[in-house]
């Protein structure tokens, strides 16, 4: 799937455990994700996918275990590592008090990494990458559709020039056509910038369409791991049910 893998970084997870108030959410997870890979995490609601993703970027601290991003341990000095990572949140996570342009340029402005004119140029360039025009730059997130908000969130993530992009339910609440567009964006970006991508989704078609490999989570543990074809033919009943779930009147 991924042609250019020059800037991606590998990810190693070792014995990751997490529980909240005695309820185990992640149980001893081990995982290796290769540089430049599009890795999809699937599983029923409450299986720990989003919690796992939040651990990868240091928003949650594990009870035990370690995460190595490009060989660096995700720990208290995460801010250094974060300059190589980006996350696209389920709802976009855009700051509602800022315009699209301010949201996308926030990272560069706050860290004073470029001159103002340069930032404006980069912002428009990244918006164009996710097929948003300069007309949209002055709008506030509340004026955008769900799909546009997600694309702005992707543009904001791209400004970091990340080596690892995490997507939390990038197609939730979107219609199938917009979901398809977002899926294509993920693949195109992966090809264009070569960053490693970890995608959490419930959307079976999206997962099968974009993934190099898929991990299926249930109750905080990986119950199936492999290529889309291997997952399709998985003998695990839950995976089979999940992939073939369709409404039938009783």
């Amino acid at each position: 799937m991924s042609d250019s893998r020059s800037t991606g970084i590998p990810l190693k997870v070792r014995n990751l455990r997490k529980s909240y108030d005695g309820r185990v959410v992640l149980q001893s997870m081990d995982l290796d994700i290769a540089a430049g890979e599009i890795f999809v995490l699937m599983g029923p609601s409450g299986s720990g996918k989003s919690v796992f993703l939040r651990h990868l970027i240091g928003l949650e601290a594990p009870d035990s275990g370690e995460i190595l991003v490009g060989g660096e341990r995700v720990g208290p000095d995460i801010d250094q590592t974060r300059h190589r990572l980006a996350m696209v949140f389920q709802g976009g996570g855009l700051l509602n008090s800022l315009t699209v342009e301010e949201n996308v340029g926030l990272y560069l402005r706050e860290h004073r990494l470029k001159a103002s004119e340069e930032i404006n140029r980069i912002v428009l360039e990244k918006l164009a990458l996710v097929r948003l025009g300069s007309d949209d730059a002055g709008k506030y997130p509340s004026e955008l559709s769900g799909g546009m908000r997600k694309r702005v969130a992707i543009a904001r993530a791209l400004v970091i020039e990340p080596q690892l992009i995490l997507y939390d339910e990038p197609t939730s609440e979107l219609d199938p056509l917009v979901s398809l567009t977002i899926g294509r964006e993920i693949v195109n970006l992966n090809r264009r910038i070569g960053a490693t991508s970890v995608v959490v989704t419930h959307h079976v078609d999206l997962a099968m369409g974009i993934a190099d490999r898929i991990a299926f989570l249930s109750e905080g543990a990986i119950v199936a791991l492999g290529t889309p074809e291997q997952i399709r033919s998985s003998p695990v009943p839950l995976v089979h049910q999940f992939l073939n779930a369709e409404f039938k009147e009783a």
Partner: peptide
């Protein structure tokens, strides 16, 4: 509170922006 609930503060953290300062 709304920023916390709608993950805006998490987003700031992932951009390596300190929410306390910001």
């Amino acid at each position: 509170g709304s920023m916390s609930v709608y993950q805006e503060i998490d987003a700031l953290r992932t951009l390596a922006i300190n929410p306390i300062r910001f």
